[in-house]
Amino acid sequence: MSSEDLDVEYVAELARIRLTPEEVATFRSQLGHVLEHVARLNRLNVAGVEPTAHSFPIYNVFRADEVKPSLPREEALANAPRQAEGLFLVTKVLD
């Protein structure tokens, strides 16, 4: 792992965030410092160590299969920046 590998423009594209050229330069430098710090993990021997995703893994949490009231459509749509006919409006995907 090395801070040299971070291609800010490419990763921002993956994350669907447009950046100005100034932001790209600033983030490259700032995140470079962070990654240099993170590189100390290279010194750590983790052979044979199990990863931890959750401090308290709980499995198979079920609830009774009962129909319960959910958010009415008007309320679910109330925060939508654009809507029509009871639906969220998205930007056109296909021509």
Partner: peptide, 27 residues
């Protein structure tokens, strides 16, 4: 188009630290 919709919505909506962390995490 849709990619510009996402890219600009998140560019204009998020502040610098949130962008930094999303980029670090995505990486």
């Amino acid at each position: 188009d849709l990619l510009e919709h996402y890219g600009r919505t998140r560019e204009e909506g998020f502040g610098a630290e949130v962008k930094r962390r999303i980029i670090l995490g995505t990486y």
